[in-house]
């Protein structure tokens, strides 16, 4: 009889222990999903949740503070993510914090990351809506790069046309006896060509600027294709060459920057948006313009000089104005 009672107690312990363990395990799993603890509900409207699912973690400054409770469409371009945030964390998160979608590690789960933005905004409360950041998307990056590529192709085409014009029209060369000058001009052209090729890597901004150059007065193209040139233009050529060299230097900078993009230092977007870089490019082109201005001035001087005045007139008669 005593033995039987002892066995019953042991059986009772065994069963209780088993059920207790099961309850504890279910509670622990549940508490990780914020099922049993008090929570605050906040929402964020995203353009794209990038595969986020209910149950994924919500992090604030890298600390797990809650889970995603619900994901639903608000309209065709907005998805509302409802997050349950542990009440203990309520006193750390201000309502001006920004929510974004990220990834846990290289191939981990998606998560919502909340970042503080400073200031003295009120702390979050139930049903608050957080501001959101559009997630950086690889797809979009590639689309941007494609536009850049197209622009690059356009620029290269333009530059080739210019170069061909320079190479095929011999007037300039035959008139200029000074081979050194010719060499300089050639070198300048080569520099510009390199510049063009290298600078083609950059954004649509560059393309726009280059287009502007082509259309505008005193543009590089106009200068180079002017076959009515006579006389001593050494100074001008030197100027052009100088401008070309400067462009080449900047192009070098560009190269190294693009190189660092390839190596993954900083995001492409950030680089593209870098305004100081655009300034540099603008300055380069200003220099080029300066060079052509000087050239024009020299040309005017040449036309006025007694040596060549006659030739210019004759030339004007033979060639009808464009």
């Amino acid at each position: 009889m005593k033995k039987a009672t002892g066995n019953k107690i042991r059986l009772g312990l065994f069963v209780t222990g088993g059920i207790f363990l099961l309850m504890a395990a279910l509670y622990m799993i549940g508490s990780r999903r914020n099922i049993f603890s008090d929570t605050v509900k906040v929402t964020g409207d995203f353009y794209n949740v990038d595969g986020l699912m209910v149950g994924h973690n919500v992090r604030f400054c890298g600390i797990d503070v809650g889970t995603v409770d619900e994901i639903e469409f608000v309209n065709d371009s907005s998805v509302r993510v409802t997050m349950l945030i542990s009440q203990d964390m309520q006193k750390h998160i201000r309502s001006n914090a920004i929510a974004s979608i990220g990834t846990d590690g290289l191939m981990g789960n998606k998560l919502v990351s909340i970042s503080p933005r400073g200031g003295t905004a009120a702390y979050i409360k139930d049903n608050d809506a957080l501001e959101t950041l559009r997630p950086v998307e690889t797809g979009e990056m590639i689309r941007t790069l494609k536009v850049t590529n197209d622009n690059l192709a356009a620029i290269t085409d333009d530059l080739r046309t210019i170069t061909e014009k320079v190479n095929t029209r011999n007037t300039l060369w035959s008139l200029l006896l000074d081979t050194a000058v010719a060499e300089n001009v050639k070198q300048a052209i080569v520099d510009i060509r390199i510049t063009g090729r290298n600078s083609a890597v950059v954004t649509g901004d560059l393309s726009r600027i280059v287009n502007g150059i082509r259309e505008g007065k005193g543009s590089v193209g106009a200068i180079i294709s002017d076959t009515t040139l006579y006389g001593q233009v050494k100074q001008t050529i030197v100027d052009i060459k100088l401008a070309g060299e400067r462009t080449a230097i900047i192009t070098g900078n560009l190269d190294s920057l693009i190189g660092s993009v390839r190596k993954g230092e900083g995001s492409i977007g950030a680089l593209i948006m870098d305004t100081s870089f655009a300034h540099k490019i603008n300055k380069t082109l200003d220099n080029l313009e300066d060079g052509s201005d000087n050239f024009n001035q020299n040309m005017e001087a040449l036309k006025q000089s007694f040596l060549l005045r006659k030739y210019f007139r004759k030339q004007a008669k033979q060639q009808p104005p464009k």
Partner: peptide, 10 residues
Amino acid sequence: LPILVVIADA
């Protein structure tokens, strides 16, 4: 058996 398995899990 389920109780045994819960304990065995632990």
